[in-house]
């Protein structure tokens, strides 16, 4: 369950949706017990369900083309308690920025990187997502690049002069 929850959290970006996703996945699993029992890798089976549920749900939501203005609350609370206050603040800021950039990824890209971050290699991701290996390599690469771009854009946006105001 921990693996599923971690993957779900990376996908959904918040605890509530991640929990829903995990439940939803298990609900599907309940309907396919025989299928799972015959599986060599039930974890992959569950992740495949999780992946497709997430993609389907994201498409259904018809969200605004621009992502949330700020979805950093949860990640802000995730900073380690060990360092001093300044380090803590810096780390929290950095983690918030990363979380924000993460959530700005396209759904498909976030899904692929989530699986990769869970330690799955190309063969396993191919099995989970059904995306051919050739395409997968390119998509992972592009996803990392997109993440990098969002990080850089956010770094610019967070600079003192607010872009929106200055463009008038």
């Amino acid at each position: 369950m921990a693996v599923l929850f971690r993957a779900a959290y990376r996908l959904a970006g918040n605890r509530s949706d991640a929990e829903d996703l995990v439940q939803d996945t298990f609900a599907r699993a309940c309907e396919r017990l025989d299928e799972i029992a015959g599986c060599e890798r039930p974890d992959q089976w569950l992740l495949r369900v999780l992946y497709h549920r997430f993609i389907d749900t994201a498409r259904r939501r018809r969200r605004s083309p621009v992502g949330a203005l700020d979805d950093s609350a949860e990640s802000a609370a995730l900073a380690s308690q060990d360092p001093g206050p300044e380090q803590l603040a810096e780390r929290a800021e950095s983690e918030v920025a990363f979380h924000r950039a993460w959530l700005r990824l396209e759904t498909d890209q976030r899904a692929l990187l989530s699986l990769r971050a869970e330690g799955y290699g190309m063969a396993e991701i191919e099995a989970i997502t059904g995306i051919g290996r050739e395409v997968l390599g390119a998509r992972l690469h592009r996803a990392r690049r997109s993440l990098r771009r969002h990080l850089e854009e956010d770094a610019i946006r967070d600079a003192p002069a607010a872009i929106i105001g200055s463009q008038r």
């Binding site: 990376r10 995990v22 439940q23 609900a27 949860e74 990640s75 995730l78 990363f98």
Partner: peptide, 18 residues
Amino acid sequence: MPLPAIGAKLLAWQPAAR
């Protein structure tokens, strides 16, 4: 990327799927 621990409520659900 920091990830939260599984919530107690989710832990309490031990699905039939498992």
